[in-house]
Design a protein around this nucleic acid. Structure first.
Lengths: 241, 241
DNA sequence: CTCAGGCGAGAGCGGTGCTCTCGTTGCCGA
DNA sequence: TCGGCAACGAGAGCACCGCTCTCGCCTGAG
């Protein structure tokens, strides 16, 4: 556990540490596979161990508990969806604000549809007594950051395109000012409120789809999703290109 | 199991049936209590049985499996939140469209904050292989119905108040037309799309709050929630009174 | 070369959902 | 009125779970 196993750049140094890192990856991969087929609630340490030809107690050399394994999977999932969004957004011309937002939104939905159980892990109900460790908040912030960046640039466009917002009460304004002070000092409160709405709408709509709340209501999920995201873009004041 | 146990009005007839109904209620109450403290994943049939001074196998006389017990709790939760929303909405003057929407939204959030585990049961990740039985779709529709009713009446107001919506692609329009044909024939597609957004925003924001995604970001949850719901109302075209 | 320590195997603890087999008992129809 | 049936609760038991502990092996660092 002492840091001597890892060089400061993160690459395992000794042979033992290399094998340990590889086995850790294999355990996570097997757990992820089991997650995809049976869901998080049914994730069994013993089954993961069987898959790897080990005995269950050996897993505890690598993860101190089942919950710690789940936490590792959660962090990986945040990283994966954040990476998918970032890469998709990066391929769009910087000046195309609408395209950047749509690219982000569609990439997140695409990842979620492909990895529904991992999506449920991070955006579904948290496990009972579980509280997210600090390690998760950084990767979790990547998608909101993309949205806020687009909202920030949209704020420099002529304001007439954005609908009038309701007046912001003082306590809400305080929260929003603290948030914008930390990440986007030039962003006005109304626009930050719209960014929060956009993120809520993005995740809320994907959750509705994956958790079955639109079953027999919406059939062409992808088309409906893109339509709704375009409406959200209009609220954000993102131009047509 | 034959219908003879119940009169057509639903009241148990024989003493045995009355005891059975009462015990069924007690089991659900004990399960709900355990749910509130330990979460759905930790709901244990044996613990419920212990609470009631029974042995675990006796529970199976009333619920064929743990999942069936959970399903019963899910239906009860849908009923409870739908009832809370309906009652709150009913106290507002019919002509006050904004008040009716805000009353609905605040009532749903209030119920969710008071019963977070039951909320997670119905709006969080569904259990792995679980698919909602038909019994759940009717109570689940009560909140969307309230929103659609308000959206429908708002559509009769001068349209200038509502922002221009993006053009609706054909497949999306088909879904929306089928939906409105079933429940609100006079409702135009743009407005129905806004109602979907309003419902998504409502549930999405409550989920963000309860599942911890706004931790350290928003502090006055209630004020922020009401502000965002007012913005959603503006999108729906609901007047200020 | 030595030996501390990382490692996997195995047994075991208390818990779980669920099944089956018992007596018992309440109730319905003949 | 009464016989039989079905509902009921208790209990034992099965397979599985997370987790702990102890035991030898064997590697790699000093």
């Amino acid at each position: 556990m002492a840091g001597s196993e890892l060089s400061s750049t993160g690459a395992p140094r000794t042979a033992r540490a290399r094998i340990r890192a590889e086995l850790t990856r294999e355990i996570k991969a097997a757990a992820r596979a089991q997650l995809a087929t049976s869901g998080a609630a049914a994730l069994s340490l013993r089954a993961v161990a069987r898959d790897l030809g080990m005995v269950s107690s050996a897993i505890y050399r690598y993860f101190p508990s089942r919950d710690e394994l789940l936490t590792a999977l959660i962090i990986d999932a945040y990283d994966a969806v954040g990476l998918a969004a970032t890469e998709a957004e990066a391929t769009v011309a910087r000046s195309d604000l609408l395209g950047r937002w749509l690219g982000t939104a569609l990439a997140v939905r695409c990842w979620a549809v492909r990895h529904p159980q991992e999506y449920a892990l991070i955006f579904g109900s948290p496990v009972p007594g579980y509280s997210a460790p600090q390690d998760t908040i950084d990767p979790a912030a990547r998608i909101p950051m993309l949205i806020i960046a687009a909202a920030n640039e949209a704020a420099e466009l002529p304001a007439s395109k954005r609908p009038r917002a309701a007046a912001i009460p003082a306590p809400v304004r305080a929260d929003l000012r603290a948030l914008s002070a930390a990440i986007a000092p030039a962003l006005d409160d109304e626009q930050l409120g719209r960014a929060v709405r956009a993120y809520t709408q993005l995740i809320g709509l994907i959750s509705f789809e994956l958790f079955g709340h639109l079953h027999n209501v919406i059939h062409d999920y992808e088309a409906h999703f893109e339509y709704q995201m375009r409406c959200v873009a209009a609220d954000l004041g993102l131009g047509a290109g």
